[in-house]
Amino acid sequence: MEKRELTCIRCPIGCHITVELENGEVKSITGNSCPRGEEYAASEVTHPVRCVTSLVRLKGGSRPVVSVKTKGDVPKEKMMDVVKALKDIELTAPVHIGDIAAENIAGTGVDVIVTSNDD
């Protein structure tokens, strides 16, 4: 039996939730005070995901970089792979919010899109 402690981030209360796992399966969730906490804890211990926000280099823009994000969540353990994969990407201005900066970043199946306009 594996025990995992985490802090719920669904609301400011920040419940300390304890999840008991057996062979990777959730056996019990305690400490949460609402169903949203249970949902968060379950997904956080089995397949935690994050949206990654970062920068890529920009040629010909008003600034040397432009902000980007993963269009959807990527597995938490892939966060650093995503930013590393962005290292060699260079876009050329103009760029607009929603433009695709990179497809299937770091093999996650998720695209990276531009989040600022630079004309």
């Binding site: 920068l55 040397p64 970089v65 650093m80 930013v83 590393k84 962005l86 290292k87």
Partner: peptide, 11 residues
């Protein structure tokens, strides 16, 4: 010096 290179240089 204030600045230590560019973003992602060390990745």
């Amino acid at each position: 010096y204030y600045i230590e290179g560019k973003i992602k240089d060390n990745l």
